[in-house]
Amino acid sequence: MTKLLIHLFVRNSEKLDDPEVRRSYGRFAGIVGIITNFILFIAKIIAGTIANSIAVTADAMNNLTDFASSIITLVGFRMASKPADREHPYGHARFEYISGLIVSLLICVVGFEFARDSVHKILSPEKTDFSLLATLILGLSILLKLWQSLFYRKVGKLTNSETLMAASADSRSDVITTSVVLVGALITRFTGYNLDGYMGTAVAVLIMITGYRLIRQTSDPLLGAAPSHVLVDDIYRTITQKEGIIGVHDLTVHDYGPGGCFASVHCEVPAERDILESHDLIDNIEKEFLSEKGIHLVIHMDPIITDDARTNELKKQVEALLDTISPEITMHDFRVVWGPTHSNLVFDICVPFGFSMKDDELVEVVSDKIHKLNSTYYAAITVDHDYVPKS
């Protein structure tokens, strides 16, 4: 059914790289959410009023929050599609993350409000009367919410949208909460035990848990979460396959929302190669990343001496030395300034965040071990940290 709806209402739906098509998906998902959630809210508020049930009313208000969330999703996609301007040179795509965060906060607020009301009803219980109509409405709403979750997930994956994936998780949670309410209603109807306040509390707690998880999920991109292993491995693999690239290091990736990926990396090239040839290679790699992957990549070129046997042998010794300290340490940009009385070894080492040694301590340990290799060796070391997951 979802495929049919997409085919009917999203023009050129197969062109997912087209920003206008992606906006059409967002508008379509927002409209579907507005219609279905409003229907659920009206149906459940009627059922809750008839049954005098705080649990059903809480579930209805949860759908009203989803209705508001769908409007926010619609506005979020519209705002995220605005082009870059002087105040926002990287575009507005992160507004989509902000809208997802707003949705998550609304979910938490609704959960807290109904937790308070449900506890009050436990302390001061009121008679409930679950009719066949109320039970039927809850059962149908479960089926509609399940379809809604699958719909959001499919469209979210197609468009790589954090907001829609958050909406899918919220809908999936609603399936659980409404099922809890339905079970409580059946128990109340057939046993006479009034579990309405308890069921309302359970619904409220589940809503708040969902909201908390979604806050973490939607705030990570805003805080600057590490890029995925898939993206990092693809970048490394694409670059290192090029003839004339010796090594890659110091990769950083900044996510400004869908379609707004900016990255920088250092590429080692043979120092003996014509600099214009290496520069042309770097330019071609940058153009390829933008045209084929949509990544704005900036490459810093590091010339490396490869035809000096003495330097290459010393580099191997230093790499082995670093491995004795920790296999997590990597080295790059190694060069040696040879002199008649002493030689300077200049290089960078990279360690992960949370490494067992502080930077100054690590530099001191490595320098001492290098000096022990040869008393005429002195190290000039720069410590870097991994900003991406290990390839």
Rank of each mutant, 00 (worst) to 15 (best):
T2A: 04
K3D: 14
R11E: 12
L16P: 03
L16S: 07
R22N: 01
G26M: 00
A29Q: 00
N37C: 06
K44D: 00
G48Q: 00
V56M: 02
F67C: 07
S69Y: 12
I72W: 08
T73V: 13
L74N: 03
R78F: 02
A80L: 01
E87W: 03
E96R: 03
I98D: 03
G100R: 04
L101I: 04
L106A: 10
F112D: 13
R116N: 14
R116G: 13
H120G: 11
H120F: 15
S124R: 15
S124G: 11
E126S: 12
T128C: 05
T128V: 00
L132R: 06
A134K: 02
K145D: 04
L146Y: 07
W147C: 07
Q148I: 02
S149A: 13
L150W: 05
L150V: 10
L150I: 07
L150G: 02
Y152E: 01
Y152G: 01
Y152H: 05
G156N: 07
K157A: 01
L158Q: 00
S161P: 03
S161N: 01
E162Q: 11
E162V: 15
L164K: 01
M165N: 05
D170C: 10
R172I: 10
S173G: 14
D174M: 10
I176W: 14
T177E: 09
L182W: 09
G184D: 01
G184Y: 09
N194S: 04
Y198N: 04
I209H: 15
T210A: 15
Y212C: 12
R213W: 15
L214K: 14
I215E: 12
P221F: 06
L222I: 04
A225R: 10
H229K: 13
V232M: 01
V232I: 02
D234M: 14
T240M: 11
V248R: 08
L251A: 08
V253K: 00
G257Q: 01
R273A: 11
H279G: 07
D283G: 10
E288P: 13
E288H: 15
F289K: 13
L290A: 14
E292F: 14
G294Y: 11
H296A: 14
I299D: 01
M301Y: 07
D308E: 05
L314G: 04
L314R: 05
L314F: 04
K315E: 09
K316E: 15
V318H: 08
E319D: 12
T324I: 03
I325S: 09
E328V: 07
H332F: 00
V337E: 14
W338S: 06
G339R: 02
S343T: 14
S343D: 15
N344Y: 15
V346E: 09
V346R: 07
P352F: 03
S356C: 12
K358H: 13
D359Q: 04
E361P: 09
V365C: 15
S367W: 01
H371A: 11
K372R: 14
D386S: 11
P389Q: 07
